[in-house]
């Protein structure tokens, strides 16, 4: 049993991490909330004054805000659908007997290790470019008109790029979960004449439900903050067609120097993320027997 001595030592050992994280969380958070209540523009120093909820009202009345909200939800939802459905199918496939399984797995997870700016630029220039991209070449080869992805379907294109980056993550986690499936149960069901589809529906899918939830929640946290992919491909455009909440706050505060308005957007982003976080924390907490 832990002695009094080791217990106080433990407290000392844990404190740097706690103090740092506490400061990291509270100081900027309080400042963001504070700034959001000010009229504060970096180009007009000295004119800061308290304006209450005006920034929120302006943000809320700005049509770009609603576009950004919808884009954020579409981006998160779109990527989740592609990666979860794709991830389940891919995980099941990778779980089958085959030659070179290890190599295939390495190929599949590779995109996760590519830095976001590289993957976005490679997709933008070498695949989606309407003149010299591979997709345009392919379209020409089969006699179609090349399509300018990032101009005419900017959000869908970004969803595609981000899905490519996150599919490996979903696949890897779902594969880990599938491999822990009790094979005897599967064999019993097979002997009883259950079809592959009903085995998937009644055994595999329920077994995966927990892992699927974890994938959805964790990805949502990251996907709410997609930034680099938008910055290097479309700059949020054309217009605000591919601007999400994160990008809008960045554009407001660091491009237009409107600290007050940007901060109000930041607070809204925090609230949005918290809604997801509550569910995620509950899931993780259940699994923790500390």
């Amino acid at each position: 049993m832990a002695t009094q001595h080791s217990r106080s030592a433990a407290r000392i050992m844990i404190s740097p991490a706690v103090v740092l994280l506490l400061a990291w969380m509270i100081v900027p958070l309080a400042l963001t909330v504070y700034f959001s209540l000010l009229r504060y523009n970096l180009l007009m120093p000295g004119t800061e004054r308290f304006v209450g909820f005006l920034n929120y009202k302006l943000f809320y009345q700005n049509p770009a805000f609603w576009t950004a909200m919808i884009n954020t939800l579409l981006l998160v939802g779109g990527v989740l659908i592609v990666t979860v459905v794709g991830g389940i199918l891919l995980a099941i496939l990778l779980d089958q007997p085959m030659w070179g399984q290890g190599v295939v797995r390495i190929l599949v997870i590779a995109p996760f290790f590519v830095m976001p700016t590289v993957s976005a630029l490679v997709w933008k220039n070498m695949f989606m470019n309407p003149v010299s991209g591979l997709f345009a070449e392919f379209a020409k080869a089969v006699g179609l008109q090349p399509f300018d992805f990032l101009t005419h379907a900017p959000l869908a294109s970004i969803i595609g790029i981000v899905s490519w980056q996150w599919l490996p993550f979903a696949t890897l986690i779902l594969l880990t979960a599938i491999q822990s499936l009790d094979s005897e149960q599967m064999e019993a069901a097979e002997m009883d004449g259950a079809s592959p589809l009903s085995r998937f529906w009644h055994i595999t899918l329920p077994h995966l439900s927990r892992a699927i939830t974890v994938v959805i929640l964790i990805q949502t946290i990251f996907l709410l903050s997609v930034f680099a992919e938008i910055l290097v491909t479309t700059n949020g455009g054309p217009g605000v067609a591919s601007t999400n909440l994160t990008y809008l706050v960045y554009a407001r505060s660091l491009l237009n120097f409107d600290v007050g308005g940007g901060s109000a957007g930041g607070v809204i982003a925090i609230i949005l993320a918290n809604i997801v976080a509550i569910f995620l924390m509950r899931m993780i907490g259940k699994n923790l027997d500390a």
């Binding site: 940007g262 930041g266 949005l272």
Partner: peptide, 18 residues
């Protein structure tokens, strides 16, 4: 532990400006 994890949930854009 749970609280530490919750700090990871903070969207970076929420604290970018400060």
């Amino acid at each position: 532990l749970m609280w530490m994890l919750s700090t990871k949930m903070l969207p970076p854009v929420g604290v970018l400006i400060p």
